[in-house]
Design a protein around this nucleic acid. Sequence first.
RNA 1: GGAGAGAUGGCCGAGUCGGCUGAAGGCGCUCGCCUGCUAAGCGAGUGUGGGGGGAAACCUCCACCGAGGGUUCGAAUCCCUCUCUCUCCGCCA
Length: 445
Amino acid sequence: MADRDITTGFHRQIPFNIGIPMLEIKFVRQNFPTVEAALKARGAAVDLVAFTRADAQRVDILSEIEQLRHQRNVVSEQIADIKRQGGDAGTMMAEMRTVGERIKGLEKDLAEQEQILGGLLLEMPNLPHASVPPGLSEEDNPVLKTVGQPPVFDFTPKGHWDIGEQLGILDFTRAARIAGARFPLYLGAGARLERALINFMLDTHTGEHGYTEVLPPFLVNRRSMTNTGQLPKFADDLFKLENWDYFLIPTAEVPVTNIHQDEILTEAQLPIYYTAYTPCFRSEAGSYGKDTRGLIRQHQFNKVELVKFTRPESSYEELERLLDNAETILRRLGLAYRVVTLCSGDLGFSAAKTYDIEVWMPAQGVYREISSCSNFESFQARRANIRFKEKGRKGTQLVHTLNGSGLAVGRTVAALLENYQRADGTVAVPEALRPYMGGKDTIGR
RNA sequence: GGAGAGAUGGCCGAGUCGGCUGAAGGCGCUCGCCUGCUAAGCGAGUGUGGGGGGAAACCUCCACCGAGGGUUCGAAUCCCUCUCUCUCCGCCA
C-alpha cells in the first residue's frame, strides 16, 4: 500500500497549512463588539484580549519586515548593477547580510504571533444570525411548525428494535459480536429497506430538487475536518485512523463541502447543489447510557446529505428551500414531524442558523431529530478558502455554505418501523417506497 | 513493492551559466472598434492575498511559480525534506 515510515510507524502525515486565516483576523478586528456579544450569547469562552494583543503585535512585526524586505530588494538590484559593470559591492553585500539576518529573526517572531492567532481563531465559533432565538439549551428551541398527524394505535406500539429483531431484519446481538455496541446489522428486508431509502432520497433530490449526486471519500484529512469546523475542537467525537492522519467522516458535509476548497468559482456556477449518500462514523463520546437501544445512536449510520454553495445574499432563502427539500422526504413517507429552530445556546460550532427536523417516534411518544439544516454563511468558506468572482466587481467574495440531512437513513428506518407497525408484528411499506422494495407492501416474517 | 518523468497564471506552455520575469508566447475571457447576421480581423485589458495613498480611475509597497526548510546581497531557477500527478513492471477489488 502506501509509504510507511517504519521508524516512527507513521503513515503519510499529510502536511497542510490552514494558512493565516487573514479574513478571519480582519473580520474579528473590524467587528469586535459584535463578535464579543455574539460569543457571549453562545456561551463560548474565547480569549479576545489575547487575540487583540497578538493581532497588534503581528501588524507591527509585519510592517517592519516589509520595510526591510523592500530595502533588501532595492539594494540587491543595485548590487546586480554594480557587478554587471565590474564594480565591487562588498560593503553593500555585508550590509544586506545583516538586514537578512534581522528579517529572519522577525519572521520567527511573526510566526509565533500567527500561531497564537490561528489557534484562537480556529476555536472561535460562528456568530449566530440575527433571527436566531436567544436561549441556553435544547429546552429553549421554539417549534416552528408541526406537520402531519401521529398515527393512532389500538395496541401498544413497540420500539423499532423489538419490531426489527422479531422480524429478523435487525440484529444488534450479532452486530455487537462483529464490532461492538452501537453498530447496526441489517438483514433481508431490513437491508433492502435501508438501500431503498437511500435510493429514494437520492432520486428525489437529484430528479426533483436539482441536486447533483456525488460519492465522496469516506476518510478525509485534517485540513478538511478543520475547514468544516469538526477540528480542532471536537476531535473526541471523531474516529481517527491509527498511524495515519485520516479521519472517518462524521457526515458527508465534510468531504462534500471541501470539494471546492481553495477554489475561486464564477458567479455563473452558483448556486451549486450536491447530494451525497455516505456512511457516517461518530464516536458518541460522552453519550453513555443514552439511546442504548435501537438505531437512534450508532457509531456507524447512513445518511443522505444536501450541501449548497450560494451567493451571500441568497443563503437564507436557500436554507428555507433546503429545509423544504428535506421535509419532502418525510411528507412522501407519510411520517409526522415538526421543525424547531435552534436557539443561540444550542447552535453547533460552525452554524449561523439551524433548523432541526424531528420525526414522531410512537414507542417513546416523542419527536426525535432526523435532520439538521444549517446555514454556515461564510464561516466554512473562510476556513476552506472557497470564493467566487463576480463580473464587473473587483476581487473575490466568500461563498456561503449550507447543508442538511436529507435524511438520516437509520433513523428513518426506525421511524418507519414504529409508525407503520401493525398489531400482528408486520410493518406496512409506504406507497412512495414500494417501487424501491420490489413492489412489496409489507415487511413480514 | 520496483524503475523512471514531472508539478509555473483560467487552460496550454517557455524560462538562458541564480539578478527589472508576477513571470515570454499561445488559447480563453472582458471591454472597445470594424463587418448589414455569423465567422474572421484590429486595439486595449485580463492572477491571488495583504499594507499604504486616492472620491474614483488608479498609483505604490510586500508576499506567492506544488508545500516546507536551506544556500545567497539576491532563487521559479541551486540543495534538502515532504506531498501530489503521470508512465512502465509487479500485485490487487
